[in-house]
């Protein structure tokens, strides 16, 4: 995990060290639900630094997914989202999404290899495309399953296929929408470690959405707490854990426990007031 040090040269990115990949300012998103306009997110402002792992936590139904979809340029918004310095006005090139619903986001009739190539085929020369797929599958440990169909794999493996698909696109930013939310606890833990490893390998900026505080603290360099209706940022926290993390030592360390307690406390506080408001 030493490769993950922040002093490493940036891979392929045009940005220098310390620049932000995302600058979100006064972001407000309203969506139509059941014929009624509802404000989901209200004037959020935050930045995502280059090569940073940002965890976004919040109770379910707060609008975390909406935030991610706005950052991927999938929905209209008001306010400002700057991606690598320029205003986001449509699907952003270089931003790859990993969805929670792996069953429907993988193409069932394509083999694992052909699923992973989905974002690069036709855009890159054939051999480079193959090379990207092979590398991405190797990184997530699915080389042997290139010719299997997604439905032949377990949930955890399918989620890894989705991560490989995102990686093959060689993105500057990976956006994760509760990717491990529907997996069992054991698979989730091993995928968390895998994600840290993959990220160290590719040195990609990550925004990771979850409602699991332990997961958010374990994975992140920084944490943003989203709550309320409409959702606002209630709290931000740096996570000064070392880059070398593992399920046992890190999660038993005093630092981890302190951070975890702090976020829990914060969550209880905002969630409590939130319920009073409603």
């Amino acid at each position: 995990m030493g490769e993950r040090s922040r002093n490493d040269p940036v891979n392929g990115s045009l940005l220098g060290q310390g620049d932000s990949v995302f600058e979100v300012e006064d972001l407000t998103v309203s969506l139509q639900t059941g014929g009624v306009d509802r404000t989901i997110l209200s004037s959020l402002s935050f930045t995502v630094a280059n090569n940073e792992f940002l965890s976004v936590v919040g109770p379910s139904g707060t609008g975390k997914t909406t935030l991610l979809r706005a950052m991927a340029g999938l929905i209209p918004y008001s306010g400002s989202i700057k991606f690598r310095g320029s205003q986001l006005s449509g699907p952003a090139e270089g931003v790859a999404l990993v969805f929670q619903d792996y069953v429907n986001s993988l193409l069932r009739w394509r083999t694992v290899g052909r699923n992973v190539s989905l974002g690069v085929e036709g855009k890159l020369p054939r051999d480079e495309c193959d090379q990207r797929v092979t590398e991405a599958l190797e990184v997530v440990g699915l080389s042997k399953f290139k010719d299997s169909y997604p439905w032949e794999l377990s949930g955890g493996m399918q989620q890894r296929v989705q991560i490989a698909r995102a990686l093959a696109m060689n993105p500057q930013v990976l956006l994760f929408d509760e990717p491990f939310g529907s997996l069992d606890a054991m698979t989730r833990e091993s995928l968390q470690d895998e994600l840290l490893r993959v990220r160290a390998h590719y040195q990609t900026t990550c925004v990771f959405i979850t409602h699991d505080i332990d997961e958010a603290v374990y994975l992140g360099d920084r944490l943003v707490l989203l709550a309320g209706s409409p959702a606002t940022i209630k709290y931000q926290l740096d996570i000064p854990l070392s880059d070398e993390r593992n399920q046992i030592n890190t999660k038993e360390s005093n630092e981890f426990l302190r951070l975890r307690r702090e976020v829990h406390g914060e969550m209880r506080r905002v969630h409590g007031t939130n319920q009073d408001e409603v």
Partner: peptide
Amino acid sequence: VLSNVITNVGLRGFRKQSV
């Protein structure tokens, strides 16, 4: 989900339709 995937991986034209 599908339209989000299609947009995010940047499928257009024939590829989009075939998916």
